[in-house]
Design a protein around this nucleic acid. Structure first.
Lengths: 352, 352
DNA sequence: CTGTTAGCGCTTTCAC
DNA sequence: GTGAAAGCGCTAACAG
């Protein structure tokens, strides 16, 4: 008795308001409530208005779990990404998120960083458990095992910003940019600026995108008649810290043996190279030319002013989203492989 | 006949493998399957092993929607954030995500950016629809309406990195840092370095955190006997572009009237100030001292070398996660309000 | 310790 | 155009 006063009209239980409560309060069946709320054309306008009105008064919202259980759709997309502190990832995620939102889908954020204890495995099970309708994978973990795992989930999948090699190459939908050409452009640019003795500071050897970049770079130099000296190549992690240490090693030698230019395979690495140059008192671009790759936000700042290669990140994210929705709409659609063009951005670190 | 060969043993339907399929294949009841998979102590080891074995063979994974429908928990936390390109947000999200993962929870990423058409309203309905177990809000939209909306959802909520004012101040769990002291530290530092004519380039006036920063700054200067000249205060957006334009306006005057120092309320603004100074040929810190706030990654790079205030972002994110889980565990626990200490980071932009 | 039974809240045939 | 009834896959009482 005393409790019943607290319960809104049309309800005889606690907990959230259900469609059944709305039905009773509105004097219709639960099916009609369901139809009215989804805008089913079969329900007559007057009834619909009434139901919506009652639903609003009762503060009803549809329970997503119950809906998903029966529709087998969640309107959620998983984005599997590496460390968000990498601004390349956060930009892509931002653009993807806006796009998915515009299509009335939400974003579940998963990490492909393997923080021990098979956490990634558990995420895979979540994905298999009907938590999302599709997956976008943004490159991070080197090697292609993560990609293979995600393919194994059996959901629509798009790989963004990463070349896929091997067996999966002809299966996986993906959006990348032309790393081969990007490397070529930088090589041609440095060569044109007079650099002959050129060093490379790169990321892990098993990263397909970086590998293509480096290959394009090396091929172009060879074509131009001054092939890369293998002893001037350093490989490590994609961090400015590695850029610094590798560059110090390469540059702290007599001027005659010192490279005239360094290609950092990513802007972060190139930043480290710039720092090392500053530490050694080398002037850029006078004593040393430096180029990077990605055109991150800060590459254009006056104090840094790094020549680099720009990939059309926004367009790539957009294309990835399009590809994913196309795949979700038709599992049998032909494979999508898009390779976006890149652009050399000439700045002060190479201006002569 | 021809189709039945495709169906794994113990299944008589298509679609994903269900717990019922596993039960039949293992010769037990569905409840036992459920118990075995959740590690319920009541099921005997031998049975459990057998069930798990069969489940593995059949490729069974529990359906999250069905589970959530009945448990009323989703093991998912919503992070409501502004534009991810802001590195402060991406850092917080990264740390939160790691923490939630460690506690076996996933992250649903929502934007509080109001891209027209009541999208945020729809997100709120999703949250009300049992999509998540809790919410972390990372400051973005100015004004407190977003916070009020999120409180209205009725789920455990923690506001991170933002001061809350007004009616909600004594209700909402939150984790912030001591912006008042941060402002004070910068003011004292500049004063000690001899600056008397000091300008401020700030963000929107209705951002509680920035307001406190500015207040601490102004109070300390007043206390030191050289109160801020209101004509040297500019307010706009938190972008380096605004920093540039505001600084050009403030600095492009005869040296006698020119400020000796500028406080950018965020590092991004301060970066713009540095750019403006460079454009005007002013030397930092010789002709102009500059300070920012946040200690973003790049603030410490040699080429930028910005004096700023560091907030313990990782610890704050950690505390926010702790507070959220505490609240989820006990809705009636006392309000959590944590205010972390800050630290002045002296760098070249003020070194004398 | 295991099985039976009854829903969670919704969508969706199928009648009317 | 609307209602009745079934059931999505799972968990949780309750028996035994």
């Amino acid at each position: 008795m005393s409790d019943s006063a607290v319960i809104p009209p049309g309800r005889d239980h606690d907990g959230p308001v259900t469609g059944y409560d709305v039905a009773r309060a509105a004097g219709v069946s639960q099916s009609t409530v369901s139809r009215a709320l989804r805008g089913d054309a079969r329900v007559v306008a007057q009834t619909r208005e009434h139901v919506l009105q009652v639903a609003r008064e009762l503060g009803y919202v549809v329970n997503q779990s119950a809906r998903s259980l029966i529709t087998r759709r969640t309107c959620t997309i998983a984005i599997v990404s590496g460390d968000l502190r990498n601004p390349a990832y956060s930009l892509l995620i931002q653009v993807l998120q806006e796009q998915f939102h515009a299509r009335d889908h939400r974003v579940l954020l998963l990490s492909d960083h393997d923080e021990g204890a098979g956490r990634f495995e558990r995420d895979l099970d979540s994905l298999r458990g009907g938590l999302v309708d599709g997956i976008v994978h943004i490159s991070a973990r080197t090697g292609s095992s993560a990609v293979a795992d995600l393919v194994g989930v059996g959901l629509p999948l798009v790989v963004l910003n990463r070349d896929v090699e091997g067996r999966l190459a002809r299966v996986v939908d993906r959006v990348t940019s032309d790393n081969l050409t990007g490397g070529r452009l930088l090589a041609a640019h440095l060569h044109e600026r007079g650099a002959r003795r050129i060093a490379v500071v790169g990321g892990p050897a098993d990263n397909p995108s970086l590998r293509r970049r480096a290959r394009g770079f090396a091929r172009e130099l060879a074509r131009l008649g001054s092939p890369l000296d293998p002893s001037l190549i350093r490989r490590g992690t994609v961090t400015s810290a590695f850029g610094v240490s590798a560059a110090l090693e390469l540059l702290d030698v007599p001027a005659a043996r010192r490279p005239e230019a360094v290609f950092g395979e990513t802007d972060y690495i190139a930043l480290g190279v710039l720092e090392a140059a500053a530490q050694l008192g080398l002037r850029v671009p006078g004593d040393l030319q430096v180029v990077g790759y990605n055109d991150l936000e800060w590459a254009g700042w006056t104090m840094i002013d790094l020549t680099t290669v720009r990939q059309p990140m926004r367009e790539m994210a957009q294309a990835a989203g399009d590809a994913l929705f196309a795949r979700m709409a038709d599992p049998h659609a032909p494979q999508v492989v898009r390779n976006f063009g890149v652009e050399l951005v000439e700045r002060g670190s190479t201006r002569s």
